[in-house]
């Protein structure tokens, strides 16, 4: 490092022999991967917007809202169940808890990266472990959410003399068929990202514990997996707004 001359003039920066963006190859490629992943998620979320826009909206007041396959549901009327509180209407409470879990696990990840900069192995281990626990907690919440969404409410919905409970890819009690399809696809795609994030974090955590990065002399891998983990949190911020709030 000491032999590397710092190049001040922009002219020589792209001439080779130096990292022109002051970021290592691996970190740069993680950024560009995340950019492409951002396009994937944008396409999915914008498709949600397109399909929702192409369906009639519910016109009445929020209090009188009833499920129907004729119009798009109000999300806070769909997502109002909380584990252990059967029959209690608590709109958006559970998804709010999930949001805070993911934000907190993002914070612990930044703290792990910060500890890594200081070569503080003990604290990297501590914060990485909290991050993994947060990720697993989020996945558990999502599993419950899916299970509730699939099984539905006790009343169900009458469609053409038949009662529908919950949701599948063909029909659902909450609204038009595409509503459930988009729910499964978008939260599923995000959930799979969380899952792979937890796996990656665990591999990095293992390497930290056995001292791989102390031998290497830097903790940049923690930084890279951190970028991915924050991105997962970033996507959830958008899913939360577009799917649950609006």
């Amino acid at each position: 490092m000491a032999t590397t001359a710092t190049i001040e003039t922009g002219k020589n920066r792209w001439g080779g022999g130096t990292a022109p963006m002051n970021a290592s190859y691996g970190k740069l490629m993680m950024w560009f991967f995340l950019l492409s992943d951002a396009f994937s998620f944008s396409a999915l979320l914008i498709t949600y917007g397109l399909i929702r826009y192409a369906h009639p909206a519910y016109a009445g007041s929020v209090e009188d809202f009833q499920f129907s396959t004729e119009y798009w549901p109000i999300p806070e009327k769909v997502f109002e169940a909380v584990p252990f509180l059967h029959g209690v209407e608590a709109p958006l409470v559970f998804v709010g808890i999930m949001t805070f879990i993911l934000i907190l696990s993002s914070v612990t990840m930044v703290l792990a990266v910060e500890a890594g900069h200081r070569m503080d192995r003990k604290n990297v281990i501590k914060w990485m472990l909290w991050t993994i626990i947060g990720g697993l907690a989020f996945l558990g919440c999502q599993a419950w959410e899916w299970s509730h969404f699939i099984h539905g409410t006790a009343e169900g919905l009458q469609v053409g003399g038949e009662t529908i409970f919950g949701a599948n890819l063909k029909v659902n009690q909450y609204g038009p068929p595409l509503f459930a399809s988009l729910f499964f696809f978008i939260t599923g795609f995000h959930g799979f990202h969380v899952f792979s994030g937890v796996v990656i974090n665990f591999i990095i955590f293992f390497n930290v514990v056995v001292g791989t990065y102390d031998k290497r002399g830097h903790y940049e891998m923690v930084e890279k997996s951190g970028l991915y983990w924050h991105f997962v949190d970033l996507v959830w911020v958008f899913v939360f707004t577009l799917f649950y709030l609006i």
Binding site: T47, R52, Y53, A54
Partner: peptide, 10 residues
């Protein structure tokens, strides 16, 4: 683009 498309489909 897709919001314009959505309202056209509607």
């Amino acid at each position: 683009a897709l919001m314009v498309e959505g309202s056209a489909i509607f």
